[in-house]
Design a protein around this nucleic acid. Structure first.
Lengths: 233, 233
DNA sequence: TCAAAAGTGTTAAGTTTACACCCATGA
DNA sequence: TCATGGGTGTAAACTTAACACTTTTGA
């Protein structure tokens, strides 16, 4: 690079850049977030999202993946960028610009020891404590994005086990949208989606009678008309 | 701040943080972007978005507003964050993390001298040149976001003059969605939206007969049912 | 035997789409 | 007088919403 160009950059300030993860889970019929009860500084004792700083040798997206892996042990998780948060005083300790990401993980599909080590726990999304800094805003934005995307993309299945019942699927949509759905109409729509396949397995944990287990087929989805909405916008 | 906390931050690297602006305009029935033909380094001679570096005394959002103002002279412009772009090599000169914003501005409602000084011009969105770095990706994402938001929020009016004809409004939706709409169905829907008000003024520039001018009323909009979509998703 | 969740169709209401002609004006 | 864009209503197709009872089984 020629001298003139170096100079172009060098006159500008540099900032710490962090990533923060809004980690969604669905268990016991509830939508939940994985939050840290901080036993470290800064803001020790308060609740926060899992976060970390972007390093020299990694992209922001990879930093988010790393941070998620540090907490859950998981790789190849569905993540979406929520946005950058760049207010001057958002972190009272230092000027830090943070990029938020949301992640969708399956119940039990993570490393419980790691989660315990970080002093993290699942909190029902309707009973969230106040979080540090602007993490409440991040959660709010992530939740809205996720809700919107769940209408047009099959991301919900990332929150369900490989095999799931239609009652589980319906409950998941209900908690995401915050409204109840008609069971018969819901099942009619499921039947129209050829990428939601019935299996011959039965789940007996949810009821005495037992419920049919279904599976999402990503290949079929790619070919299909992919009209997902169970709910109008 | 106590020593322990300082240390917490100081071990991490810091980065240049930039903002880049995707500036939409609508004129002569076409959707356009305001692009720079760079007569400065780096990447002199190539096309790019208008951008700049975040400074110590400003938030990322305010940096974007400043950069937009530097180019157009405009304040109080509708802007939305598109997202952060944090690949390691996205700017080959230096590691720079950029936050993209899109802006919607009205035709003729900007400082033409400033635009000329920056060697910027309006380019039809269907005839964009290749842009530097990852600016093409930014434009792509901005366009998708804008399209999606235009369905549920009355942002289109930010691209139109205060008074506009229904033909202008329809053409705008058509270029945003990339599909033609039925004139009678379109006008029926406009009639249902009480925040789009007819005025007693006539525009004679577009036709011999003249067309009724309409106006968007933000107060009425806030109270209304705000169902905007002219197009299904 | 009964409580609890699973499963199953039809009809009315509402929404969306398709479609063609007359009007007013300036050149 | 004619070319150009402005303006207007209806009917059929489709989509959505509302609704209640039977089945299975373990406790």
């Amino acid at each position: 690079m020629i001298e003139k160009e170096k100079k172009f950059y060098i006159q500008h300030p540099r900032f710490y850049v962090a990533v923060d993860c809004i980690i969604f889970g669905f268990d016991e019929g509830k939508l939940k977030l994985l939050l840290l009860k901080r036993n470290f500084e800064p803001a020790k004792g308060q609740w926060s999202l899992m976060g970390g700083f972007v390093q020299k040798n990694e992209s922001a997206d990879n930093a988010a993946k790393r941070v998620l892996r540090e907490l859950t042990g998981l790789e190849n998780v569905y993540m979406e960028q929520v946005g950058a948060f760049g207010e001057i005083e958002r972190d009272p300790g230092e000027r830090v610009i943070s990029i938020a990401y949301y992640a969708l993980i399956k119940p039990d599909d993570y490393d419980k020891k790691l989660v315990k080590q970080h002093n993290a726990c699942w909190v029902n999304i309707d009973e969230l404590p106040t979080l540090i800094f602007d993490h409440d805003m991040m959660v709010e934005k992530a939740r809205n994005m996720m809700k919107r995307q769940a209408v047009s993309k099959p991301i919900c299945f990332r929150l369900l086990p490989e095999l799931f019942t239609l009652t589980q699927l319906q409950t998941l949509y209900e908690v995401i949208y915050g409204e109840t759905l008609d069971k018969r109409n819901f099942r009619k729509r499921v039947a129209d989606m050829d990428f939601i396949e019935i299996t011959d397995k039965i789940d007996k944990t949810g009821s005495k009678r037992g419920a049919r287990l279904y599976r999402m087929n990503p290949e079929t989805y790619c070919k299909s008309d992919r009209k997902l909405p169970f709910v109008k916008l």
